[in-house]
C-alpha cells in the first residue's frame, strides 16, 4: 500500500459532467474516465469482499457442526442427489464461461456476440435455478425441510441431521437468491447491450457484473463438495 503511486490523474479544467466520445459519461466528480473506471472496479471488488464474509459466517457454522456430527452429516448428505448436483455444477461453470466470453466480446466491441453470450448466461443460470427448484421440491415431498414435520428416514444420528438441512437450505438459498438477483441484472444488461450502450472503450457494467457472476459460481464450487459429496462411498463418517 505504501509504495502505491499517488493518484495523478489530474486533468485541469474539467468541471461538470462531460462525455468523452465512446466512453460513456464521466461523472462530474471524477477527473478522467480512467479514474472513474478504476473506482468502479475497486468498488466491486470491495463489495465481493463483503459477500465473501457474508457467506463465510455460514461456512463457519457448517464446519463446526460437521466437526461435531460427522455421521449425521454423512447420512443426511446421501439424501441429496449427486447427479443433479454434478449436473448443476456443470451448468453453472458453463454459464461462467459464457459470462467470461460476454466480457471478452464487449472488450472487442462485438455487440451481437455480447448480446448472445449474455442471453446464454441467463438461460444457463435459469436452468440452474430450475434444477434447484426441483431439488427443493423433492426435499419438500420427503419432509426434509427442518421444522415441525422434519424427518430423516434411515439416517444415522437422525436427531442431528436437521442441522445439515438447515445449513443446506440456508446456504443454497442464499446462493440462489444471489443468482436470482443476477438474473434480473442480466435482463437489464441484455437490453442495454442490444441498444448499443456499450463499446470496446466502455463496458464497465458488463465487466463488473462478470465479477459478481463468477463470485457466485465460486460459492457453488465450494457448496457442491461440502453438501453433496460427504462420504459418498457410504463406509462411515469422516473420522
Amino acid at each position: 500500500m505504501a509504495n502505491e503511486p499517488a493518484v495523478a490523474l489530474h486533468e485541469a479544467g474539467h468541471t461538470g459532467a462531460h462525455a468523452h466520445p465512446g466512453y460513456g459519461e464521466v461523472r462530474h466528480h471524477f477527473e478522467s474516465y480512467a479514474q472513474q473506471k478504476d473506482a468502479s472496479t475497486i468498488g466491486m471488488w470491495v463489495f465481493l469482499l463483503t459477500e465473501l464474509m457474508f457467506f463465510g459466517g455460514m461456512f463457519m457454522a457448517y464446519f463446526v457442526y460437521r466437526q461435531w456430527y460427522p455421521d449425521a452429516f454423512a447420512s443426511a448428505s446421501l439424501k441429496t442427489n449427486l447427479w443433479l448436483g454434478a449436473f448443476n455444477t456443470t451448468v453453472l461453470i458453463c454459464s461462467s464461461l459464457t459470462m467470461a466470453m460476454a466480457v471478452h466480446s464487449a472488450s472487442t466491441g462485438k455487440r451481437l456476440l455480447l448480446v448472445g453470450f449474455l442471453i446464454a448466461t441467463l438461460v444457463l443460470g435459469s436452468a440452474f435455478l430450475g434444477v434447484k427448484a426441483y431439488e427443493y421440491h423433492d426435499k419438500w415431498v420427503h419432509h426434509e425441510i427442518p421444522g415441525e414435520h422434519y424427518e430423516c428416514e434411515g439416517c444415522v444420528d437422525a436427531g442431528h441431521t436437521s442441522l445439515f438441512f438447515a445449513l443446506y437450505f440456508g446456504m443454497t438459498g442464499l446462493h440462489a437468491s444471489h443468482m436470482i438477483i443476477g438474473a434480473f441484472i442480466l435482463l437489464v444488461l441484455i437490453w442495454q447491450s442490444y441498444k448499443g450502450k456499450f463499446s470496446a472503450k466502455w463496458y464497465t457494467p458488463i465487466e463488473l457484473f462478470g465479477l459478481y457472476w463468477h463470485f457466485v459460481d465460486i460459492v457453488w464450487i465450494f457448496l457442491f463438495p461440502l453438501l453433496y459429496l460427504i462420504d459418498r462411498s457410504g463406509k462411515g463418517g469422516i473420522h
Binding site: G147, F169, G170
Partner: peptide
C-alpha cells in the same frame, strides 16, 4: 421465524 434450528441445542446446535 421459521423454527429452523441453527443454534438451538434441541437440534444439537451451539
Amino acid at each position: 421465524g421459521l423454527h429452523i434450528g441453527f443454534f438451538d441445542p434441541a437440534y444439537g446446535g451451539d
